[in-house]
C-alpha cells in the first residue's frame, strides 16, 4: 500500500516539477496531487522534516542537469540531474569496480561543474572497503578527482551509512555525496531511500547511491544505472575506462543501454571508438605507455619474454 502511494507520489512529482520532459511522465489516474503528498509525508519518518525542509523539498527548487558528453545518453536523460539522488549498481559482483568508476565519473562531472575547490563525500560501509577495496588517493587523482578534497566516512553498518549520508546531503559543504552501503540490508528500504531523495531534492549536494554488493533493492532515485565492465579500446594494453551502462529506470525519460567511455583528461563521457577486435596478448606484455619501469640491478640481462609459459599453482 505504502509502496503504491509512494510510486504514485513520484509520478505526481514528476509531472509537477519536471519541465524538462513532461511527456515522459505517465498519466496519473485521477488522483489529485495534493491528496497524495501528505500521505507520503506521513509515511516517511517525521524527523526529516525539521526546520522547514518540507517547504523547500516541495517547492521544486531550481535544478540543473550536467551533460554527460555522450549524445545519446544526454538525449535520453537530459544530463545528470543535480540536487537529486542517483542509483548505481553493478550488473554482477565482479563489476563492482566498474560501478564505482561510473559513480566516480558522475562525481567528476559534478565536481567539475561546482568548481575545483568543492568538497566531496564518500560514505561507505566498513564491509564495502574490505570487499571492494578502499578509495585510493593516487588512483582517484589519476581518475581526475581531487583526493585531498574528499571526506571519507567509514560506517559500521547500514544505519550509520544512512545517518552520515543524510547529514552529508543536508550539509552545504559537498558537491557530490557517494553513498555505499554493503550487502542487501532490509534497512535500505524504500523509506530510507525516499528520505535520501527528499534531502537531496533541490539541495546543493547530489547523492549517488552506489550499491557495490548485493541485490538492488527498491529505489526512489531519479535514475538507476546498472553498470558492467566493457573492454577498453587501448589496443594491446588496457585503455581508458569503458562502461556498459544500462539505464534501468529513468523518471525523466526513456531507458536504454549504451557503451560509455570516460575521458579522464576531459572529465567527460563519450562514445567509445569502434576498433577491430584485438586478440589476446600472448606471452609478451606491452611496455608501460607512460613512465617505464626503473632499470633494476636485479633484472636478468637476457631479454624478457623469451622464457617458456609455465603454469603456477598456488595451494
Amino acid at each position: 500500500m505504502l509502496r503504491r502511494q509512494v510510486a504514485q507520489l513520484e509520478r505526481a512529482r514528476g509531472r509537477r516539477d519536471d519541465r524538462a520532459d513532461p511527456g515522459a511522465v505517465e498519466e496519473l489516474a485521477g488522483v489529485p496531487v495534493h491528496d497524495i503528498a501528505p500521505a507520503a509525508v506521513r509515511a516517511a519518518p517525521t524527523s526529516v522534516f525539521r526546520g522547514g525542509r518540507v517547504a523547500n523539498a516541495w517547492a521544486g527548487a531550481e535544478t540543473t542537469a550536467l551533460p554527460f558528453g555522450h549524445p545519446e545518453v544526454d538525449a535520453a536523460t537530459g544530463g545528470l540531474k543535480r540536487g537529486a539522488l542517483h542509483d548505481v549498481s553493478p550488473a554482477g559482483a565482479p563489476d563492482m569496480a566498474s560501478a564505482t568508476g561510473f559513480a566516480l565519473a558522475c562525481a567528476g562531472l559534478l565536481l567539475r561543474a561546482a568548481g575545483r575547490d568543492s568538497l566531496w563525500l564518500w560514505v561507505r560501509a566498513e564491509m564495502a572497503g574490505r570487499e571492494a577495496g578502499e578509495p585510493y588517493g593516487p588512483g582517484l587523482a589519476a581518475f581526475g578527482l581531487d583526493p585531498s578534497r574528499l571526506v571519507a566516512v567509514t560506517a559500521g553498518d547500514t544505519a550509520d551509512v544512512l545517518r552520515a549520508a543524510e547529514e552529508g546531503l543536508a550539509a552545504r559543504a559537498f558537491a557530490a555525496v557517494l553513498i555505499e552501503p554493503f550487502g542487501d540490508d532490509r534497512r535500505l528500504d524504500l523509506t530510507a531511500c525516499r528520505r535520501l531523495s527528499l534531502i537531496a531534492d533541490g539541495g546543493r549536494a547530489t547523492g549517488i547511491l552506489l550499491r557495490t554488493g548485493g541485490v538492488p533493492g527498491p529505489t526512489s532515485a531519479v535514475t538507476r544505472w546498472r553498470i558492467s565492465a566493457a573492454p577498453s579500446d587501448g589496443g594491446r594494453h588496457p585503455g581508458n575506462p569503458v562502461f556498459a551502462a544500462d539505464l534501468a529506470r529513468n523518471r525523466l525519460g526513456p531507458v536504454g543501454g549504451w557503451m560509455m567511455e570516460w575521458r579522464i583528461d576531459e572529465q567527460s563521457f563519450r562514445t567509445p571508438r569502434v576498433r577491430p577486435k584485438t586478440q589476446g596478448v600472448g606471452p609478451l606484455a606491452v611496455p608501460l605507455s607512460g613512465r617505464l619501469a626503473a632499470a633494476s640491478g636485479n633484472r636478468p640481462s637476457r631479454p624478457s619474454g623469451s622464457g617458456a609459459v609455465v603454469p603456477f599453482r598456488i595451494g
Binding site: G101, A132, G133, G139
Partner: peptide
C-alpha cells in the same frame, strides 16, 4: 598525475 592526456590511469581507484 603525470600521465599524458588521453592515457589510461596508472593507479587503481580502489586498493
Amino acid at each position: 598525475s603525470d600521465v599524458l592526456p588521453g592515457d589510461p590511469p596508472e593507479r587503481p581507484i580502489r586498493l
